[in-house]
Design a protein around this nucleic acid. Structure first.
Lengths: 118, 118, 118, 118
DNA sequence: GTGGTCTAGACCACG
DNA sequence: GTGGTCTAGACCACT
């Protein structure tokens, strides 16, 4: 279910964060559903528990999950804000890339065509 | 002419590569024109010469420049291929981001609007 | 009657202690009245009996209750001291926070306004 | 300069975060000033470097600092937002404590007196 | 069993 | 030398 790409320069814990986050956004993990335990996931992926812990901590900090000692980690029911900021980041990234493309001689129309065709 | 943003998490040598590359693409540096020497640039920017060296090596590897022993580093006259691959990378990045946006509930039309309006 | 907030990072037993304590202070539980049994409360709240036990032990230690073997746990008639120390703790906390607010540029008058307006 | 209280149940890294944060707010550390290095601080306080690292990461996430690989960690020049949210948190805490005090029979006027007298 | 903190020690990228 | 990631292993609090 979670696949780690060791060739990816992106740190493992960050890959995990993105993966889980997108699962939550897509509704694969529902609100208040429990996520796999730190130790369980560590075993499944053959990864050190601390690395999993770090990923979960970041999700917590982002407001995507909440964790209860002795019980587990659960999907937060209110992650709208996190979603909005993520969309905003994507928007800025796309605009930045468009700007770069333009400076290389690609017109805005062509960029829009890329999106239309895919 | 070259401004380094120390607050940018991107490594300095990478910032340099991008800057010079875009200058070449835009024609600020013409074909066969000589780039500033490693030592000169290092002094101007108050940066470790090794960092400049690394940036220049990467430009060489990308085919953007060629170096002549004892004389200096010059802009390659044939960087079209480099330019094309760069455009290709940008295209893929934009499509990937669009895909992400869609999975967050943003329609493709909205993405195109972002580009149109900016 | 007792509501547990699982999203609250505060441990369950502590939430219980606070709840019961405030009920006693407010007179909801009168002196020498019997509290619900460990097993009963555990069932009602779908909580591990050990957790209830721990909460009751803490109330005992604080002098808020006394337990009679084989009969149950009862509200102490003399919890004035516990009440006073609690008030003292609250006072110190408020003063500490006020000090912090001042170091952030909030005047004492503003702090008092916060309290007045709420 | 940084004193750790091992009797304090608050984790070490959190104590550090609060300490440094308040130093920045008070102007002890100026904008763009470099903070002590991870290893240096670890040695000075006889604390594991990872613990320091964690504290610095949190400051980064809060927008209080920015870190540059190979160079060091520096005080951010724009932490106004962080300051505002902190003040907000303090306000809510004070109001909550006031509410608690009132439920224990302390009038709001008395609470204000505490602040006035200190 | 759960999550959370801390230590020790290694390795990497960067300057 | 700097910060950042990861592993291994220990201990704690909570259920």
């Amino acid at each position: 279910m979670f696949s780690i790409d060791y060739k990816n320069p992106m740190p493992i814990y960050e890959q995990l964060v993105e993966k889980i986050e997108s699962f939550i956004f897509q509704g694969v993990f529902k609100a208040d559903e429990q996520l796999p335990s730190v130790r369980q996931l560590a075993m499944d992926l053959s990864i050190n528990p601390n690395t999993i812990q770090k990923a979960y901590s970041m999700l917590d900090a982002k407001g995507m999950t909440y964790s209860v000692k002795g019980r587990g980690i659960f999907v937060s029911s209110d992650y709208q804000k996190a979603k909005d900021t993520r969309i905003q980041v994507i928007k800025e990234d796309i605009l930045d890339l468009t700007k770069q493309a333009e400076s290389l001689g690609v017109t805005r129309t062509q960029v829009i065509n890329w999106i239309d065709e895919y």
